[in-house]
Design a protein around this nucleic acid. Structure first.
Lengths: 250, 250
DNA sequence: CGCCTGTTTGACTCGCGTCAATGAAAGTGG
DNA sequence: CCACTTTCATTGACGCGAGTCAAACAGGCG
């Protein structure tokens, strides 16, 4: 083909990328569509706001590296983090119901984003119906997030276990091994996201550490006993009262 | 026109109906599209399951009268009500991410539903792009539900106030006045939906009643002091310790 | 009339939020 | 390179909101 290779054809996330893996689109065709519509590798630094509440809705974004929090603001000035976006995740869908964003999106870590203009995507959908399927499936995924169940039903230790397991599952082959997790956010943000006080986050991480389940150093967590984490999350009895590891030499 | 009038042209919900009010579609055209695609006035009785977890995804539904709860099941057999659908609301979008529903939908009250086959809707989108806008806006609305904020940040009395206000706002001109609310669900379901114990629901309703804010009789609630409800929700100090009304004769 | 489901109310307990103080780490300027 | 400031994290003490357990009550239905 005489079409120039899209920048996505070598992206390490291409297998999980919404736009790239649109089912039913021949790869060459998808590349062509992408090359014309996507803006790739947009750098963002930690704390940078990608968009704010009420700002005009123009793009869908994807996290290529780093992480992004999407949060909802209140009249009292508090925030509620409603979505945590890691590499491969999409955000920006909160602008769909009117022409403005109802969340704000802030980079938790320095990284790279890709984006596609919504109008372009709409046009592409009418030209290539299978993209609609992809988009709807993607939105469906965001819908059935179990976060609401986690925050409204699970005890605080279960919530932390849940988050740790989720983060470790998110580690791809190109990143850390599944037993090493980098917490992308502060304790305050974790608490906000999980619906608990930041002190509780810290306390539970300490308890897990005392029991030899994990090893915490700031934002870096080593999962020593994944089974224990799973047991905690699965509601089976786990004794979190007595230290299990011989940390006495410390 | 020789096209027969669609059953929707006289529906009392037509102004808020997703399919009917698709913007940019000439009314006659919309009617025609609807007549061919919608199944209207499907009766459901209280407790009837419209679809269950894992059942094949075929339709989008709309509540015409009555109410429907959408809930997520857990391995332990509990349920979590994630959506409460009142007349004019859409449900069924939980089937979008794969070909099966991830929620179950159960009628809370006897009423009528309308439905549209998803495949048909997909085809209509490619023929009439403005329907895509409608659908996406609708999905966007579901996204930015503030329920997560309510359940994870507000105290239990605020949550109840929030629900009562929402229900009263939902009363259309054809239904009850804004000061009269019919609770569509049991205390247990309310608690489940709002993330609290059913006893707490009952207790708070009683407290509101003692303070002369509402008058409760089973599922029927008369809002005596809407301002007080709004103040409770808005975090301003409201004294809920002493009875304000002269109910001593009771 | 008794059964069953749903509601109300009380008593008790405890998980976790709040307040507070200290410690560690990271950024800032001279 | 080292003081200073600021942000972030940890740990303890304390109290309250709300869950759990339990019992009595109301209403609907066969």
């Amino acid at each position: 083909m005489s079409v120039p290779a899209s920048p996505c054809s070598k992206c390490y996330l291409r297998k999980q990328c919404l736009f790239y893996r649109a089912p039913g689109v021949a790869q060459g065709g998808a590349d062509q569509i992408l090359a014309s519509a996507l803006t790739t590798n947009i750098p963002v630094v930690q704390g940078e706001r990608v968009y704010g509440y009420g700002s005009p809705f123009e793009y869908f974004y994807m996290v290529k590296s780093g992480s992004v929090k999407c949060s909802l603001g209140t009249s009292a000035g508090e925030e509620l983090i409603v979505d945590l976006c890691l590499p491969g995740d999409i955000f920006g869908l909160d602008g769909l119901n009117d022409a403005r964003h109802s969340y704000s999106a802030v980079a938790l870590e320095t990284g790279l984003l890709c984006k596609i203009r919504f109008e372009t995507l709409e046009r592409l959908i009418t030209e290539e119906p299978c993209i609609l399927r992809s988009l709807l499936r993607l939105m469906g995924q965001k819908f059935i997030s179990d976060l609401r169940f986690v925050t409204s039903r699970m005890s605080t230790d279960k919530r932390i276990a849940h988050l740790l397991i989720n983060l470790s599952k998110h580690n791809g082959p190109n990143t850390l091994p599944a037993t090493r997790v980098r917490l992308p956010m502060t304790r305050a943000d974790m608490g906000n996201y999980l619906g608990m006080a930041l002190e509780t986050v810290s306390r539970i991480l300490s308890i897990f550490q005392k029991n030899g389940i994990i090893d915490v150093h700031g934002k870096h967590v080593e999962i020593l006993d994944p089974d224990a984490l799973n047991r905690i999350m699965a509601d089976r009895e786990v004794d979190l009262s007595a230290p299990a590891a011989d940390n006495s030499a410390q």
